[in-house]
Amino acid sequence: MSESHPPLRSYGRLKTRTIKPRQAALMETLLPTLRPPAEAFDPKALKPDAAEVWLEIGFGGGEHMAAQAQRRPEVLILGAEPFQNGIASALRHIDEAALTNVRVHDGDARELMTRLPDASLERIFVLFPDPWPKARHNKRRIVQTETVAEFARLLKPGGTLRFASDWADYVDWSLERFVRSPAFRWTAELAGDWRSAPADHITTRYEEKRLGDCAPVFLDFVRT
Rank of each mutant, 00 (worst) to 15 (best):
residue 123 R to A: 02
residue 142 I to F: 15
residue 41 F to P: 12
residue 196 S to K: 13
residue 41 F to S: 08
residue 111 E to V: 03
residue 6 P to H: 06
residue 99 L to C: 00
residue 60 G to S: 12
residue 200 D to T: 11
residue 70 Q to R: 15
residue 106 D to F: 00
residue 5 H to G: 07
residue 14 L to G: 09
residue 171 V to C: 12
residue 128 F to R: 05
residue 86 G to N: 08
residue 221 F to W: 15
residue 193 D to S: 02
residue 14 L to E: 05
residue 19 I to T: 13
residue 16 T to H: 14
residue 213 D to H: 03
residue 63 E to L: 11
residue 138 N to T: 04
residue 130 D to R: 05
residue 17 R to T: 10
residue 221 F to Y: 15
residue 68 Q to P: 00
residue 31 L to Y: 01
residue 49 D to T: 12
residue 74 E to G: 10
residue 101 N to P: 09
residue 6 P to L: 13
residue 137 H to A: 08
residue 205 R to K: 15
residue 135 A to N: 11
residue 101 N to M: 11
residue 62 G to V: 04
residue 30 L to A: 01
residue 108 D to L: 09
residue 87 I to N: 05
residue 126 V to R: 03
residue 16 T to S: 15
residue 105 H to R: 03
residue 36 P to H: 12
residue 117 P to F: 12
residue 189 E to C: 07
residue 206 Y to R: 03
residue 59 F to A: 01
residue 155 L to Q: 11
residue 134 K to S: 11
residue 67 A to F: 05
residue 185 R to C: 08
residue 33 T to N: 07
residue 164 A to Q: 06
residue 35 R to L: 06
residue 87 I to P: 05
residue 224 T to P: 08
residue 180 R to Q: 14
residue 219 L to M: 15
residue 155 L to A: 11
residue 77 I to Y: 03
residue 92 R to P: 00
residue 74 E to F: 10
residue 134 K to A: 08
residue 62 G to Q: 10
residue 89 S to D: 13
residue 213 D to Y: 05
residue 63 E to K: 11
residue 92 R to N: 08
residue 108 D to A: 01
residue 33 T to H: 05
residue 217 V to I: 14
residue 216 P to K: 06
residue 159 G to W: 11
residue 61 G to Q: 12
residue 7 P to H: 15
residue 33 T to A: 09
residue 115 R to Y: 05
residue 49 D to Q: 12
residue 221 F to Q: 08
residue 70 Q to G: 15
residue 99 L to M: 01
residue 196 S to Q: 13
residue 50 A to R: 03
residue 97 A to P: 00
residue 31 L to K: 01
residue 58 G to Q: 02
residue 164 A to E: 02
residue 137 H to I: 08
residue 75 V to A: 02
residue 158 G to F: 12
residue 7 P to C: 06
residue 12 G to W: 03
residue 174 S to G: 13
residue 90 A to R: 07
residue 65 M to P: 00
residue 65 M to W: 06
residue 14 L to K: 04
residue 207 E to I: 09
residue 88 A to V: 04
residue 74 E to R: 15
residue 55 L to V: 04
